[in-house]
């Protein structure tokens, strides 16, 4: 009797161990990267790039296929300039909350995931770029002519995601009478926008354009095109990384060659969205200095 219980316990314990060995990060898909991998950046054979998996138009992975989107295209170009073939890239999902940790923990070599350069983040991680300058904007229904900017939102319903400061900013600075709903993701917001329960969705313009450009949403929504903040999307790298200058050079080259423009157009087609010219050529687009 006693032996039986011990063997059952042993079996249970070994089963638990075996199962916990295959945590989400060690299998493909759930997101994350292998820790302590032998390859390091530069000299190794593969490069681990953190992107979003659920942001259509920027970083989106359909099924088990290759990810697509503007972030992905820029990442591929930069990786190519750094000497990696496309097949050498290992894509790793880095949700917003995990980005600093993933870099600090050495789980990824670079991050291209709508990663705004801020002073607070720069204390923990390094940045190259920016490769794009976005601004907070509004997504509205195609036939909407009333909402032309954040000031027009008084008495309207606005959707944003939980934990984002963008919706609160509108309430505080532009339209006090706006009705806010916070949801788990932008996909929910877009569903509400389509059904008419909300009148606008707010976040960075290029994210909105990416959402509106999916085949299912094509022709239904438009980006207002009146950006009222500045978000400089940088390439996240480990603090003190020596790759910063090489990444900056690659971004400059991509813009000069026209590949940047091409990637942008391809990923935001049919949404009437054009990136803010003044922002993307102005002082905000100036590359960070790589002197660490």
């Amino acid at each position: 009797m006693r032996k039986k219980y011990i063997s059952v316990a042993a079996l249970a314990a070994s089963a638990a161990l075996a199962l916990s060995a295959c945590s989400p990060s060690s299998t493909d898909g759930g997101g994350g990267g292998e820790t302590g991998g032998g390859e390091t950046q530069g000299g190794g054979e593969t490069v681990r790039i953190g992107i979003k998996f659920d942001q259509p138009g920027l970083g989106f992975r359909e099924g088990s296929g290759d990810p697509t989107g503007f972030d992905v295209d820029v990442a591929k170009y930069v990786a190519g300039e750094l000497g990696y073939a496309e097949g050498d890239i290992e894509w790793i999902q880095t949700p917003s909350a995990n980005r600093e940790n993933a870099l600090e923990g050495g789980e990824v070599d670079m991050i291209f995931a709508t990663y705004s350069i801020t002073d607070e983040r720069a204390e923990r991680v390094g940045f190259a770029g920016p490769y794009f300058v976005a601004g907070q904007d509004l997504l509205v229904r195609q036939d909407d002519t009333e909402i032309t900017g954040p000031e027009a939102l008084n008495g309207k319903n606005l959707c944003s995601v939980t934990g984002s400061t963008s919706a609160q900013r509108i309430k505080d600075e532009y339209a006090e009478g706006v009705n806010l709903v916070e949801q788990g993701g932008y996909a929910e917001c877009v569903t509400y926008l389509e059904s008419g329960q909300v009148d606008a969705v707010t976040t960075d313009d290029i994210i909105l354009a990416g959402l509106a450009a999916t085949p299912e949403n094509a022709g239904k929504f438009k980006v207002v095109g009146n950006a009222f903040t500045t978000e400089r999307y940088g390439v996240g790298i480990p603090k003190g990384s020596d790759q910063c200058q090489a990444i900056n050079d690659a971004i400059t080259k991509m813009k000069d060659e026209g590949a940047w423009e091409e990637a942008l157009t391809a990923n935001t087609e049919g949404t009437g969205y054009t990136p803010d010219e003044t922002l993307n050529n102005g002082p905000d687009a100036e590359l960070v200095s790589c002197e660490a």
Binding site: N157, N179, L180, E188, T191, Y192, S195, G196, Q197
Partner: peptide
């Protein structure tokens, strides 16, 4: 129910 069936109990979210 709210998003699709559009049953709204109050205009105040």
């Amino acid at each position: 129910v709210w998003g699709q069936l559009k049953i709204t109990f109050s205009s105040d979210f």
